[in-house]
Design a protein around this nucleic acid. Structure first.
Lengths: 198, 198
DNA sequence: GTCTATAAGTAGATAGAC
DNA sequence: GTCTATCTACTTATAGAC
């Protein structure tokens, strides 16, 4: 009974902390605001997480995990019987599209803190970028590509670059470009179906 | 005489501010440290730039301008008589390579502050991403591509994604990948010279 | 113009009451 | 276990001496 009340408070702290850190970054986040938004005292926060940095670490880990589940939870690349152009199209949308706006702010924070918290960035690479490269490499290998890892990384980098420029850096508010048009071009090139001038 | 002494102090402030903002981001930067590193008092800084935010704006503009000159200063795409694969290779290195480590930290700060300072991000897009897309689009149009803008953006996004994952997010410390191998793959695909399985 | 000194506010973290 | 009250340090910004 007391445990569940404590668990509820801890969840409230984490939720409030997420909003605060996503809105202001690490240095700009205020424990005062987190406490007041969570409906607890600052002392309570410190009893859960001794320092601000511990709270930040816990939160980043939680956000990173949830993104991992989002990207790979509904993805079964190997056993999918659909044609490559369909599979790759779906995967491109998985990488570059954003169902919830929260991940954009997470990326901003992760990149923004990647100088002061490099291990968060590396952990993100390990748990998201590496498995994506691996899965794609195996897939392109199965299609008989001569350099499957280069194809895999080209695919991933193109969609990441698109996401960073259009969504994270507000590029689509300056000059919007359709993500499907990009991925279609890329997929046709990779599969050798592109219409060309000759 | 007094003017030049003032100009020297102002330059010292901007240099110190650059180090401070790049190292700590906007919220984490301290005017105390900037003043002490520049060898002036805080009051002097405030006499030049009324608020911290004004100093930050000035600095970002300066950094963005210098990067613009770096990327396009030595680049004459249209009149270059060299073959496409050479030109594109050089351009790929321009986008993804970093002669000075400073730009990595600038990107981290720009992305990290792009939620609270969206106009900086947009200004960056306008002065760097847009001209790149434009130049590349014209180049691919000259080569007879059916959708030159899609090819242009694919090229730019792939190199940006590579840069963000490998350099900004420390990806190369987790699993390094050769930038030339990526751009060679991309260029061969675009120019229709890729070796394929069939 | 540029400084020192200080104002006024907020930061993270803790002691001690309950 | 959670609170209120407080400590110490640091923040931006300014007033006033020179």
């Amino acid at each position: 009974m007391l445990d569940s009340r404590r668990a509820a408070k801890e969840a409230a702290v984490l939720d409030a902390a997420m909003q605060e850190f996503l809105a202001h970054g690490y240095a700009g986040a205020s424990l005062d605001r987190i406490a007041s938004r969570a409906g607890v005292s600052k002392a309570t926060i410190h009893s859960y997480y001794q320092y601000k940095e511990v709270l930040f670490e816990t939160l980043i880990q939680r956000l990173s995990d949830s993104r991992f589940r989002h990207t790979f939870g509904s993805l079964e690349l190997g056993s999918d019987p659909q044609p490559p152009e369909v599979i790759l199209q779906v995967l491109a949308r998985h990488i570059a599209q954003d169902p919830d706006r929260e991940f954009i702010r997470f990326m901003r924070m992760l990149v923004g803190e990647s100088d002061r918290f490099p291990h968060h960035a590396k952990s993100f690479i390990t748990s998201l970028s590496m498995p994506t490269v691996l899965q794609l490499t195996q897939y392109f290998q199965g299609l008989g590509f001569p350099d499957p890892e280069a194809a895999a990384r080209l695919f991933m980098y193109a969609m990441i670059g698109f996401y960073v420029e259009q969504e994270v850096l507000h590029g689509k508010e300056v000059a919007v470009f359709d993500g499907d048009r990009l991925s279609q071009t890329l997929i046709r090139l990779l599969l050798g179906q592109e219409p060309r001038q000759d």
